[in-house]
């Protein structure tokens, strides 16, 4: 493969994408069957998920091997960078949909249901007595009485955790660029530990919400936006933490050099992205 040094590397055929398609077919098809009430779908879905993991390992494994045997010139590296950046942009837009739902519900729907402006008669006829207040589970009090998650407790600790993990990953990045391998190793490790602690605390928080606050996914629009926003964020933190774990093992094997370390930076960017999303969440969902 060394003759490709100056040329843009074009892989010749790969079976991983098709494996990925089969995996998603089983995973989502199975899940759909499960949602329609047939338990077998759940099993198929899990097999699909396992196959997806195999596919990801295989695909990324190939890419890592190619990278280690110097197939990629700086132009390929740049393609990867741009690809990752625009992928993160699309993720931002995914979250934007849910934040949009939160703002719309809070700023418009609830006041309208409460009879604001021209909606006076709507309120009187359909939802008499409903007062526009946030947090709200709607005029039918879907899910019953509930309490909101206080911003000061676990969420504040989680904010501190994510913020400091952003610092540690940046320290690791600088260490990588300066050739300080010990600090790099430690920086990534601490970030991974902080990442998984966040997920653990988030799970604790959910249990607290369900068992003590009566705050559930079905708690009207407040519960819907709260759990779907924090849930998708938590999912992304999990993905980011797994990504960083892989990076940590690659650090141990000495895969990265001060000049060439795209995968490290991709993971770091992703981590900053989940961090920024969290800050928005903390501000708009917990605090305000």
């Amino acid at each position: 493969m060394d003759h490709t040094h100056d040329k843009y590397y074009i892989p010749h055929g790969s079976h991983w994408p098709v494996v990925g398609s089969c995996a998603l077919f089983m995973m989502l098809g199975g899940f759909a069957v499960y949602l329609n009430g047939a338990a077998i779908g759940g099993t198929v879905s899990l097999i699909g998920l396992a196959l997806l993991v195999v596919m990801l390992a295989g695909w990324f494994g190939t890419v890592i091997a190619e990278s280690m045997s110097d197939c990629y010139n700086s132009q390929v590296d740049k393609s990867f960078r741009m690809g990752m950046m625009w992928f993160i942009f699309s993720e931002v837009m995914f979250f934007a949909a849910f934040f949009g739902a939160l703002f719309y519900a809070r700023q418009l729907v609830i006041p309208w249901l409460g009879g604001e402006g021209t909606k006076f008669m709507t309120n009187l006829m359909l939802w008499p007595g409903f007062e526009a207040l946030w947090p709200s589970n709607g005029p039918a009090h879907a899910g019953g009485e509930f309490e909101t998650m206080a911003a000061a407790g676990l969420p504040a600790i989680n904010t501190a955790i994510l913020l400091s993990s952003s610092v540690t990953i940046t320290i690791a990045h600088h260490a990588l660029k300066n050739g300080n391998r010990l600090l790099l190793n430690l920086g990534v490790l601490v970030t991974v530990i902080l990442g998984f602690s966040f997920i653990f605390l988030q799970a604790t928080e959910y249990m607290h919400a369900y068992s003590e606050l009566n705050l559930k996914l079905s708690t009207g629009i407040y519960g819907s936006t709260f759990f779907v926003l924090t849930g998708f964020h938590g999912l992304h933190v999990t993905i980011g933490a797994i990504f960083l774990t892989v990076i940590w093992f690659r650090v141990l094997r000495g895969h990265f050099t001060p000049q060439k370390h795209f995968a490290f930076e991709a993971a770091a960017w992703y981590w900053h992205f989940v961090d920024v999303v969290w800050l928005c969440l903390y501000f708009f969902v917990y605090w305000l």
Partner: peptide, 10 residues
Amino acid sequence: THFFNAAGGG
């Protein structure tokens, strides 16, 4: 969830 259901505030 109640994103699109007025009874729940959606």
